[in-house]
Design a protein around this nucleic acid. Sequence first.
DNA 1: TACCATTACTTGTTATGACAAGTTATAAAC
DNA 2: GTTTATAACTTGTCATAACAAGTAATGGTA
Lengths: 246, 246
Amino acid sequence: MVRNEMSECSSHIPLYSKIRDELRAHIFAGDTRPHEKMPSESELITKYGVSRITVRQALSELEKEGLLFKVAGKGSYVSKVKPFQGLGRLQGFAEAMSSHGYEVYNRVLSINLLSASPEIAKRLSLPEGSLISEIRRVRFLNREPVSVDVSYISSHIGERLVREDLGVRDIFHILENDYAISLGYADLTIDASLADTQQAELLQVDSGSPLLRVERLTHTLEGLPLVIEYLHYHADNFQLRLKIER
Amino acid sequence: MVRNEMSECSSHIPLYSKIRDELRAHIFAGDTRPHEKMPSESELITKYGVSRITVRQALSELEKEGLLFKVAGKGSYVSKVKPFQGLGRLQGFAEAMSSHGYEVYNRVLSINLLSASPEIAKRLSLPEGSLISEIRRVRFLNREPVSVDVSYISSHIGERLVREDLGVRDIFHILENDYAISLGYADLTIDASLADTQQAELLQVDSGSPLLRVERLTHTLEGLPLVIEYLHYHADNFQLRLKIER
DNA sequence: TACCATTACTTGTTATGACAAGTTATAAAC
DNA sequence: GTTTATAACTTGTCATAACAAGTAATGGTA
């Protein structure tokens, strides 16, 4: 068959990924709501003028991402998804989410310079009363707030971070690429809490809603504690996932 | 083309799933070690006598499972399994806690035989409506209730479990030592919820208290889903901890 | 020897075709 | 009217085919 018209574009982007991204955008935009039926394969074939194997690959990837599920003999349906962050590797929030096609944005609430509390100082192996930077942010996924994030890092690094664009970039990304600080591992402590008034307002939920609370202490490649974060996720909209070996 | 010989079997198991399962068993058995090259697509085509689309589907699913990765122009390679420390290991509750000196006790609330819901059936890769056993327990740590645990397992195994002493023994322990079923890995999904009336009473907390909710799907060493559990931890008394590598 | 082109592999992408099997609405039979 | 059979959808599975593109080894040329 003759080369398809859609591939006329100078870039060599596969057709299926273009279709996949377009369908995903539709889902994120809410054009097709959860549990509603997606266009059938034959409809997509005629709409995009491609073969069945191509639309199936697009749909298959969206299914793999958890955005839709298929029922044999009926069709594909948008699933009610909770976005999730995999804990298989140490990743920043934006890093993990944008690879799944999500739009990520951080609203910086405040950046303060203060002296480390005993708790923080101990975790970061700093002398008590050391100058540290406190960064308060709200994380948005597809324009919906999903977490309130408070980070503490030595002011020596924190003062440089102030000048960075924390609205779109991960702190992890800045540390590794701009500051050449290699990250090694993180210790996570996970539990749950109830949203207080301030958290509720920031996350646009009712006060007393369940929050997934994560304390993350990230270490450099050399094993030195670098940054400690207290993350409060809106549990109705977010999950953590991991695989563990026996 | 003539129907393939592999499909002569009375059961209507797809060819790709047969190939997928066989390759996965090879990987888990260590026949092909991490970073070693898997057979190429053409080798698998001749070996199994199927078309390329079929072996690609098998390989694609294994890639989705994280068991292998592909390099264009080179081949497929077995992924390295990242070892986890501490609570990153798949352990039964009693197994993990008693090694830390805690006194563990399980109160069995009920054991029911019922037909699998679509959700459960899908997770356990069983036909919808299959007979499964539901085991409801409350877990005690030093005589204080810490979690409500609902487990679902194929009735074929569940009916044997009824006769075991689930009050002190881990299901994991029974499966491995008494039934000789080797466990491989588990997929965990973590979020938070609020205690409903029943959960609150069982955990002796106020209704509406924050609960850490964990869904754990445990697989055999061969990679087949075995048991799915819904664990609700009393968040004030329990935390999950893990270490993540960059 | 160093470099480059060819070649022979690999996976990636896509088309076309076919039949199986699950679902649903319609029409025919009772 | 109720049931049943059929038709018309849907997704699932699989074969064959072709070309693109990435990788590596081989060989020939400068």
